[in-house]
Design a protein around this nucleic acid. Structure first.
Lengths: 331, 331
DNA sequence: ACGATTGCTGAGATCGATTGCAATCGAAGA
DNA sequence: TCTTCGATTGCAATCGATCTCAGCAATCGT
C-alpha cells in the first residue's frame, strides 16, 4: 500500500540500490542470477519504478505531449487516437493537451514539456498566431508540427497536400458534370486553411470556373451563413467543397432544415475523411487525409529529431472517399 | 537556453535556494522586498519551477489524469473539454489518457498516476470489465468515477439519471402520438448502458407498450443491423430511442441510405445531447446530459476526496433537447 | 534594560532514482 | 605463483526542488 521505493527492493533483495536500478534499466550490466533474483523480489513487493525520479535524474522522460486546439473537432480526436497508438508502440506515453485555441496555453504547454524532460512534442496548431509562441521554444525544445511553421525550416513538419486534395475534389465533381463549384471555408488562420483556399482558386481558374466563396460570419454557427450566401448567389452553384468535414456537416444540416436535400439539390464534398462521415446522413463524400500516417509520422519525425537528423518536411497524399453526398448533375 | 535551476536563481539573486523556493511557493514567509527581488531575477533568467522535482519532493503534483476509453466518441471529447476547463480553473493540469477499452491499459494508467503523485484521477469507463482493475488500485489511490463502480461505495461517482432521461424521451414521443417505441442499444457492458436498457423496459411496461429492442451484431457497424432488425419487425415501431447519439446517427444514416427519411418514416431520439447533433441532418433530438456539470463535479469530487470527506455519489438530471429528428405521428 | 517573541533567512537532509568511479573476485596469462 | 583483466557490485554524488531546524536580528512586554 505504501509506495515501495528502490531502496526497499534493495534491502529485501540484499543488494545495493544501484544493482536494482541496473537490473531494470541495463540488464546486461548485472549477473543473470542476481538480476532474476532482484526482479523477482521487486515483483513480490509490487515495485515499479518512479518515472518522475527517473526523469529527473536522467534528464529525459518518455512523455510526449500532443498539443491540439480542440477535441470537439473529430479530426483531432482521430488524430489523437492514432498518434497515441503510434506513440505507445514505440514506448512513449502520449499526453494530450487541449489549448482551446489559446495562444498562451500553447506556450505554457510547450514550456511545461520542457521541464518534463520530454524528448519532443507534437503540436497541431489551429491558428497561425500561436505559432509565434511556439517558435520561441522551438529552438531549445524539440517540436514536431502537424501543419506548418512560418518559414522556419528547423522545425520538422508533416502535412497533407491540400492542393492535391482540392484537385481530387474538383476532378470528382467535374466528372459528375458539375461546372459551378463553390467553396465553403471554415476556420481561417492556419496554413492548411490558407492552402485549401488558394488551391480552390487555382483549380477554379484552371478549369475556367468562376470562383464562389461561401463565407459565413466568424464566430457564429457556420451553416446558416454559408447556406444564406449560397442561396443569394445569382448563378447558384450545384456543388460545394467544404474546407473540412465539420463544415460539410453544418451545410448539409442547414440545407435539410430548409427542406433541401443533399445530394439532390446540392452536391457536398468534405475534407478530412472522418469515420464519422460514414454515419452521417447522407454518408459524406470527402477528401480523405491519411490521419493514421499523420500520427505515426509525427512520432517518427520526433525520433529522428532526437537522433540528431536534419528536420524533415513531409507532405502526404490525400485520397478520395466517395460516399453519398455527391451525385451526377441532372439538368 | 540551458535549463535554469533554482540554484542559478539563488546565486544570481544572492540568496539561498530555500529563499527562492519560498518566494514562489509561500510568498508570505519571505520579506516583500526580498521576494520581489527574487521574482525579478527569476523572470530575467527565464526561470520556471520544475514540476517534476517539485512533485518528487512534495509527494504531490497537480497532474490529474482523465482516463477515457475512446476519443472518437464525441461524448468523451466534450467531456474532456469541459473537464479540462474545470481542472484548469482549479489549478490542475488535466492529462488525457486513452485506453481504447483495454483493461490492462486502464490499470497501467491508474498505477502510473500513482507514481506521478497525482492528487486524484478521473475514470470514465466504457466496459464493466476494466473496473475490476480499477478497484485493485482504488483503495490506495484516489479515484473518481464517471458512471459507477460495482458495489463499492468508497469510490465517489457522478452519473446522470438514465431512468429519468428515458422517461423524458418516452414522454416526448408519447406526446407526439407514438405508441410503438423501440430501443436501439449500442455498446453494452457499462452501468449506464445497463441502466438505460432497464429504464426502457420499465417505461415501456408502465405505458403498456410492448418492448422492442433493436439489437445489432456486436463489433460491426451498428446502423445496418439495427435497421434490418427494425424492418423485420411485424409491427414496425414508429419511433426509436437510441442509447446514445452515435447510435442515433448511425441509424439515421442507414435509413437514409435505404431511401427512408427521418423523422417522416421514423422518429429517432438520441441520448447525450452532443453539440454535434445540431450539425446533423436532420438536427438530432436528444436527451441532453449535463456534460459540463459532469466534468466540473468530477473535479470537485476529487477535491473533496483529498480533503478527506466522505465519498459522494451524485446523480445529475438530464433534460430534453428537442430538435428535428422526431415528429408527430401522422397515421 | 533584559529575556521572550516574532520575522526572516541559511544549512542541510531528503524525495527516488542514475551513474562514474572504486573495490572485489575469480580466472587466465606469464 | 604473481600479475592482469574483465565482469560485477558497492559507494556516493547528483538531478531540482521542499521543509524542518537553527541562527540572528528587530521588536515587545514589563
Amino acid at each position: 500500500m505504501a509506495e515501495v521505493s528502490i531502496d526497499d527492493v534493495a534491502k529485501a533483495a540484499g543488494v545495493h540500490r544501484s544493482t536494482v536500478s541496473r537490473a531494470f534499466s541495463k540488464p546486461d550490466a548485472v549477473r543473470a542470477a542476481t538480476r532474476e533474483h532482484v526482479l523477482r523480489v521487486a515483483a513480490e513487493l509490487g515495485y515499479s519504478m518512479n518515472p518522475l525520479a527517473q526523469a529527473l535524474r536522467r534528464g529525459s522522460s518518455n512523455l510526449v505531449p500532443l498539443i491540439v486546439p480542440d477535441m470537439t473537432n473529430p479530426f483531432f480526436a482521430e488524430l489523437a487516437r492514432t498518434t497515441a497508438a503510434a506513440a505507445e508502440a514505440r514506448g512513449y506515453q502520449l499526453m494530450l493537451c487541449i489549448t482551446n485555441g489559446d495562444t498562451g496555453q500553447t506556450a505554457d504547454y510547450v514550456s511545461a514539456m520542457h521541464s518534463m524532460y520530454s524528448p519532443f512534442g507534437i503540436v497541431a496548431p489551429s491558428t497561425r498566431v500561436n505559432l509565434e509562441a511556439l517558435r520561441r521554444y522551438a529552438f531549445q525544445n524539440r517540436v514536431v508540427v502537424i501543419d506548418r511553421v512560418e518559414d522556419d525550416p528547423a522545425v520538422p513538419t508533416v502535412t497533407v497536400d491540400s492542393a492535391r486534395g482540392i484537385d481530387l475534389a474538383f476532378d470528382h465533381l467535374l466528372g459528375l458534370g458539375h461546372a459551378n463549384i463553390a467553396y465553403a471555408p471554415g476556420i481561417v488562420g492556419t496554413y492548411t486553411a490558407q492552402d485549401r483556399w488558394d488551391a480552390y482558386h487555382h483549380a477554379a481558374e484552371r478549369h475556367g470556373i468562376p470562383p464562389v466563396v461561401l463565407e459565413a460570419a466568424p464566430g457564429a454557427d457556420p451553416g446558416p451563413g454559408i447556406v444564406d450566401h449560397w442561396m443569394r448567389e445569382p448563378n447558384r452553384p450545384t456543388a460545394v467543397i467544404a474546407s473540412n468535414d465539420l463544415i460539410a456537416f453544418a451545410v448539409i444540416s442547414e440545407l435539410g432544415a430548409r427542406g433541401l436535400t443533399v445530394p439532390a439539390d446540392l452536391s457536398v464534398i468534405g475534407f478530412d475523411g472522418l469515420d464519422l462521415g460514414a454515419q452521417f446522413s447522407p454518408r459524406l463524400t470527402s477528401v480523405r487525409q491519411p490521419i493514421t500516417d499523420l500520427g505515426r509520422i509525427a512520432i517518427e519525425l520526433g525520433e529522428a529529431l532526437i537522433a540528431g537528423g536534419p528536420p524533415d518536411h513531409l507532405v502526404l497524399e490525400p485520397s478520395l472517399l466517395i460516399r453519398s453526398s455527391t451525385q451526377e448533375l441532372r439538368p
